[in-house]
Design a protein around this nucleic acid. Structure first.
Lengths: 334, 334
DNA sequence: TTGAAAGCGCTAACAA
DNA sequence: TTGTTAGCGCTTTCAA
């Protein structure tokens, strides 16, 4: 009952044309007369013909497949990026091959995806070893890192202006007359964390302040809760915390309000980074820095497609402006 | 500078064996002597050989590609399902080709994914027309619908026990002495909504009640807000609302607390469905019905792999038990 | 266990 | 514009 697989040859025979005529009919921009095309289309419809994308990819060298490597999807920022990138690429006739990766096993995953002859790689919250990056470069496959930056030739990147974002937060908190301003870091190895933190310290310094305290949350919900407890276990407690991303900020707010019975922003102000949808939910109403996912996706897709179509991989680094989104989780400047 | 593409022929030449020997070395379970394999492996490593998955798929008829169709990723339930399914399939050597679909354009998307010779289709929050389902069945490609059910032969499904879940909610709200119990529906065409609603009404009936009022939120954040406003624009207002999923419940809670200045559960009780991670966040602390995503993913992957490997598509419908998760968004029974 | 040979379904020269 | 031809890189008979 299964599979009477229909090939272009079958269609050709039925339409009484050559097999290449069939191929041309299904290749946008190829030269076929209207008459031939109609005959082919008719036969194809009758037979239920569907071109084999694999065969096509193999011979043409264009698989129209883009690999997307993601480390986790529980931080809403990433599903949103994934959805938008996928839609944008679909519109251009490309498709996403999804790879969930564990830290440490990323190189293995890259080997797998290269076997599928992907034409590009998008990495979100994932890092590429320099060995792998070189391998991709040799194969001529463009790599775009989203929300992370690596000093590797050939790997392009799209990031928020994290340094400026950090500065904005510092200024906002200082203007709000906070005196003991702490920071909760994400993954200390990530460029995103480094830049947000560096910008934040720079901003504090510009107002003659230094960071009051610091803990590490590792970008995870539980890690952030632990970091919050740590900061508040000490004698002198912060009156404001900049948390390296929204996802962790929610966890911090939960711990402060529930376990420590602190009012936000009455007792302590919280600022996050990303402006994920939940930040606008009134249960949190989180003051944060927006990194426009639309702009980031645009840049990612543009870089990718350009490099694929020009067959020339030249490293590019797009930096998307950051904007402070003021809500109610942090005391306002007077 | 790019692409000295290495083929199995190159490896064969260098290892001084036949090209088929190379192929066998990379085919688990093929018969090669240890000596030959070593020679091949050595040559392959030296050359940086990587089997071409596309060529392999073409000839063997096994692409090891599974298509996943999703309508949206902003409801956290879906990214979680996506992440887990992807990891589970990766472990078994399969990979996810992701398709974001718009309602109405799903058939078009299916045509595209069939071209990639996927060996299975997972549909989440997406519906398949019966025409398409038939086409998949003819090709022998298994289809599994997650969180949705369709009366189509050959399309398997994995759902929560939505009827029982709805009943549990009704019982809980009645036991909590609520008297004006309303329902906010998702997409009225979806089996999930139908079953949750039917079970809910059945549960109310078992206690001699009927639904007080009803509005439709269409599974969207904004739609749910609108539905909430609608329910409370009337003279007599509900004292409890069962919202068809958590994602909408958050929106409803926001509207009630912020716009209508109502206390939850003081003035009105809210119950959701799904138990997404945010439901446990203390900003919402939502009483809800848990549909174990782990159990659903297990069932999905098992059905899929079994049908792929047995090359036999037999419709199956897995129903995962539902469990009420009591938190603080609804008044407790005495 | 090995190698030779025959394709998988298609695109892309090349001539006609 | 059309058909012929030669592969893309691989798996899988089939004989040896």
């Amino acid at each position: 009952m299964t599979k009477p697989i229909v090939t272009s040859g079958d269609v050709a025979r039925r339409a009484k044309v050559s097999q290449s005529a069939v191929s041309r009919t299904f290749t946008p921009g190829a030269s076929v007369s209207a008459k031939t095309r109609d005959k082919v289309l008719k036969a194809a419809a009758e037979l239920g013909y569907r071109p084999n994308a694999l065969a096509r990819a193999m011979i043409s060298g264009r698989s129209r497949l883009i690999a997307m490597m993601v480390a986790y999807l529980d931080n809403q920022f990433y599903p949103i990026v994934l959805e938008k990138i996928s839609r944008a690429l679909q519109e251009r006739g490309y498709h996403i091959l999804l790879f969930m990766t564990d830290p440490g096993r990323q190189d293995q995953v890259v080997q797998q995806l290269l076997q599928y002859q992907v034409q590009g790689i998008v990495m979100a919250s994932a890092t590429l070893s320099s060995t792998l990056a070189r391998e991709c470069a040799q194969t001529g496959i463009p790599v775009v890192m989203v929300n992370r930056y690596v000093a590797i030739p050939h790997a392009s990147s799209v990031t928020s202006d994290n340094i400026e974002g950090g500065r904005l937060v510092a200024k906002f908190l200082v203007d709000g007359s906070h005196e003991r301003i702490a920071f909760i870091a994400g993954d200390e190895d990530s460029s995103t964390n480094r830049d947000r933190e560096a910008g934040f310290y720079k901003g504090l310094a510009e107002h003659g302040l230094t960071v009051w305290d610091r803990a590490v949350g590792g970008y995870s919900f539980d890690g952030a809760a632990q970091a919050a407890r740590e900061l508040f276990a000490k004698r002198e407690k912060p009156d404001a915390i900049f948390v390296a991303n929204d996802h962790m900020a929610f966890s911090v707010m939960d711990v402060l309000r529930t376990e420590l019975k602190l009012a936000i922003p009455g007792d302590v102000s919280i600022v996050g980074y990303d402006d994920v949808p939940e930040a606008a939910w009134t249960g949190y109403d989180l003051t944060t820095v927006s990194q426009s996912s639309d702009a980031m996706i645009d840049a990612t897709v543009t870089i990718l497609i350009e490099q694929i179509e020009k067959r020339q991989v030249k490293k590019r680094a797009a930096v998307i402006p950051a904007e402070l989104i003021v809500r109610s989780s942090a005391r306002l400047p007077k």
